[in-house]
Design a binder for these strands. Structure first.
Lengths: 211, 211
DNA sequence: GTCTATATTCGGATAGAC
DNA sequence: GTCTATCCGAATATAGAC
């Protein structure tokens, strides 16, 4: 593994753990195990390195959200719940969302654009899945996809905040359970006559218990 | 206004804007308009000043959440929605929640305890209001107050994250609208026979699930 | 390409005058 | 109580040797 990749990997970790402002070039070089000259040879400076590292992280997060549009994974509502239930290390926080609280990250146009793009991608996938769920009669027609997409995305992001505040994974899991329960109750309120015709099985087999 | 109060006010603002790690004693003194000697006379150092300032902020936030238990403000569900709809400056972020992303704040036992206490107070009020809503038949008996409290608290905290990510208030408002809509739909799904504890009818058919 | 040495500024705090 | 002067180390980067 070349020095360049070692540096971006180390920077990605440190951005996650400490954020941009609190990460010094020294820290990165030490963790990457390369000398100072290597870093300034491959990158113009801390900023340049952060842009490269955060871009890579943003890509992997976008991939994760593809569960929402994976038709193989079940009905739209099932995919929404599956995405909500993906394992998330609450006490470590979100690698992208964390940046929004870093004053320098928000100010920096390059970093801000990366964060904004990551959220735009995820929200777009949420909206598509929600609209599909409405079309399939899994959610009532009164649901506004753009609103609910932000609500559910906020539950995840807020779950990270709560988990970090308490230093415990439990609040994150509880927040997700509560959101799934709201979705189930909302789904149950759909007028049966509006349901999609190609999934005409009995209702009531969706009650999967989570402890 | 004495130097001490000027310092805590300035520190509170800077903690909000930049967090703990990114705020230097110099910044605080400059904004407060006092000399360096004054600061080290009234406080042992940056840490001591931050503890005093954050404690004050935590108190005002707890006061705000008292809407949830203000019986004058309406039914439990109405109070929940009223609290969700309180005006919140999304792009500025939450004064308490922001601390959870500051590496030094989470590490520091004193600061961490303040943040943890603020969330504990708020979550407790949420749980009480939700339990009251269930008791009043405004929400179904299947609702788990501890879970839903964290879900709704997460919507608010996540709303801040989304708003900051996009540099726009709109995502915060959308997230709140979506949450209120979910609550309304869930409320509508309550079995009418379980409503209004003043005129209690037979209960117990909630166990059969939502079919 | 990678290293060590060196500048420069800032963060955080102390000392002591007024 | 409040101020200015000053110290020490870290953050960020440049210079130039190997």
């Amino acid at each position: 593994m070349g020095a360049r990749e070692k540096l971006t990997d180390a920077m990605s970790e440190l951005l996650w753990e400490r954020g941009y402002a609190a990460t010094s070039p020294r820290d990165v070089m030490t963790r990457a195990g390369v000398g100072q000259g290597s870093m300034y040879h491959h990158f113009a400076g801390k900023h340049d390195l952060a842009v490269a590292s955060l871009s890579a992280v943003s890509g992997t997060m976008a991939d994760e959200a593809s569960v929402l549009e994976d038709v193989e994974a079940g009905t739209p509502l099932e995919r929404m719940k599956a995405y909500l239930r993906l394992p998330r290390p609450g006490t470590r926080g979100c690698r992208i969302g964390r940046m929004t609280q870093d004053p320098q990250s928000v100010t920096d146009p390059d970093l801000a654009r990366i964060v904004q793009g990551a959220f735009a991608t995820m929200l777009g996938r949420w909206e598509d899945a929600i609209a599909a769920a409405v079309a399939a009669g899994e959610l009532p027609g009164t649901v506004v996809p753009a609103d609910l997409a932000r609500t559910l995305s906020a539950v995840i992001q807020g779950g990270y905040v709560l988990a970090r505040a308490e230093g415990d994974q439990a609040p994150m899991d509880a927040a997700i359970r509560g959101a799934v329960a709201l979705l189930d109750a909302t789904s149950a309120s759909v007028d049966p006559s509006a349901r999609e015709s190609r999934a005409p099985r009995e209702r009531g087999d969706q009650e999967e218990g989570r402890s």
